[in-house]
Design a protein around this nucleic acid. Structure first.
Lengths: 353, 353
DNA sequence: TTGAAAGCGCTAACAG
DNA sequence: CTGTTAGCGCTTTCAA
């Protein structure tokens, strides 16, 4: 039958790839050719239903799984995608990674990790080498690499599918976006429902994109709740714990201090809780506090923080899923809106409780 | 010359593996056979220095990199290792992962991620499938998987090299260990040098292994500094922020409260700082505080925490390096002691300053 | 709708 | 020290 090995006496020495079931074994068992098995495996057309089922049964009983490297070597696909990142927060990255892994595993793709330096002038070169080198089928980009225009251009020239994970609005690309604006609106509705009428906002550094979206959500949330926007209740921080402490003291120094504070991220919200405590006030009895991101600190502090959970893992999963879709059929991938959820915890409560 | 392709007219259609430089090209350029190039690439013996240099030059100018899948398919090594983990803290895992990646990249190995459930009864089966499936050359184990005896036994039966990342003492295995005991001793010496004579300890949950090592280090540190061990100064927490708050209040309620507190992890130390603040006392003026682990919270709080940095990334890097060593030459891998460093920050200061 | 043969790029075994 | 040959397990022609 043209079987190239495993004939003759099976001496114990040098038995290659111990006990591996090969496509040939499946073919023999199903009474078809290797190629037909291959067709079934790859969902190719031109296989009769009856044949397909016989092959699938053989695959099942033999517990056959194709050897990735053989597929890569023989075919034009590599079943390999890479996650490009430049050292954002570990938690964020880990969540993204898990999500991407979810999607990859579900579709029998492999994931490669590619740490990069956004600032390096050879970034484009590095990625190009990686792509060619490892025969990548596509890449997932995380911020800030999502904004590297030269890289995006090059990837397009090379025809390498890519998906971006980003909070920003995108144009034609494949990837995910998060509606931070809508999320903050919902958070504000929560506070308003608790009876808060004077809600302060500790915004992030003005230069950071997210600060803008979150501030806009704050204002829109007030409007929808029928509350007046008071510029005096908005103070600027810079996303750090200590800037949250300082900003909150400024809010509490007001003649009519707010009864609730929305900080643009969890670190600053944690700082707010600290500052409120330093005044001898209590959270949420005297002042409610909420943050954004649901980083671990949200549960490490006391009281635990009401915040917005962006479901970073979903972002990774959905972005990868779109990428794989785009790989299978060029142009099939699109932009997906990732759901967020309000994490209600003990740091917010009814006004004047 | 037996060149199997790229003869004849290069029509633009279906050009496979666009522009890839193959080992054959290098061989031709260097005027040697493919096999010789292969020898050089794999650091095999029996290559003259002159030949080696010629080959290396050719590799350089052609920017040749071997195609992983071809190596895997042809050889008995896969140049692939996996990191087995069960969802420990994201930061910890990410650091480990980066370290492992460092080592892998340095030796042109690929890394695969394998999320697992320690509790699942099919864990051993899963790992076994993965190993066979992906032809893994070895695996890196992180806690708590390091303690899964059935898995360790199976890996040994299969002859799959593995390295463990663990703080515990190990026997014959390959991996890294951390001298937590010595680290705490050093921390205590730091406090003693600042003049502290009454040093409290908030220990972790007694059932947890690390608690024991850290407590032992506390006692030994006291001894070396010539300070008396007072059981009243040791209170039990359970590694959480809130347990740190509660435990610290107990210490401060003592007739002669400590002037410094060593908490067995950063979360509890952060809780200690909070509790001290609630008493109207200041850190480090009235009480010094230090933690262990150098998790992000150590820098997110105010004052920033003096703590022990375990260099998790080094743990990953060194464990992987030992694994790769062991893969190349069975039995060559060993146990490496990972250095720690004292992170001196603002939460500790001279007594009675 | 199916199959036979010819590689994918590399390394292993065995000669020289 | 170096080269030759025969595959690794799969997909891709291309023919039936």
């Amino acid at each position: 039958m043209g079987n190239r090995k495993r004939e003759g006496s099976d001496d114990a020495v040098g038995r290659p790839k111990a006990g591996r079931v090969r496509i040939e074994d499946v073919a023999e068992r199903a009474g078809v050719s290797m190629k037909t098995v291959s067709r079934v495996l790859n969902n190719e057309p031109n296989v009769s239903e009856r044949t397909r089922q016989r092959v699938e049964a053989a695959v099942e009983t033999l517990r056959y799984r194709p050897l990735p490297s053989a597929r890569v070597l023989a075919g034009r696909r590599s079943y390999l995608v890479a996650l490009l990142f430049d050292n954002p927060s570990a938690n964020y990255l880990m969540e993204i990674e898990m999500g991407v892994l979810d999607a990859c595993q579900a579709q029998h793709y492999n994931l490669m990790l590619a740490p990069l330096s956004y600032g390096a002038d050879d970034l484009v070169e590095k990625v190009e080498a990686l792509v060619l080198q490892s025969q990548l089928d596509g890449v997932v980009l995380t911020p800030p690499i999502t904004d590297h225009v030269a890289l995006l251009r090059r990837l397009e020239e090379l025809g390498i599918p890519y998906a971006s994970i980003s909070a920003k609005e995108q144009n034609r690309h494949v990837g995910v976006v998060v509606d931070e604006y809508g999320a903050v609106c919902e958070l504000m509705a929560h506070l308003a429902a608790l009876g808060h009428q004077r809600i302060g906002h500790v915004m992030g550094h003005a230069a950071h994109g997210a600060s803008g979206w979150r501030l806009a959500g704050y204002r829109e949330g007030l409007r929808r709740a029928g509350l007046r926007y008071d510029p005096a209740l908005v103070v600027e921080g810079e996303f750090s714990y200590e800037s949250g402490v300082a900003a909150t003291h400024r809010l509490l120094d007001l003649e009519r201090p707010p009864t609730a504070i929305f900080a643009a991220n969890d670190d600053m919200a944690a700082g707010a809780i600290c500052a409120i405590g330093e005044r001898g006030l209590s959270v949420p009895r005297d002042v409610s506090v909420c943050g954004f991101d649901d980083t671990p600190i949200a549960r490490q502090i006391h009281p635990a923080l009401t915040t917005i959970r962006q479901s970073t893992r979903d972002m990774g999963r959905l972005a990868a899923a779109e990428l794989l879709k785009d790989i299978r059929e060029l142009g099939a991938g699109g932009i997906v809106d990732v759901p967020y959820t309000l994490q209600l915890r003990r740091s917010t409560g009814p006004v004047g409780a």
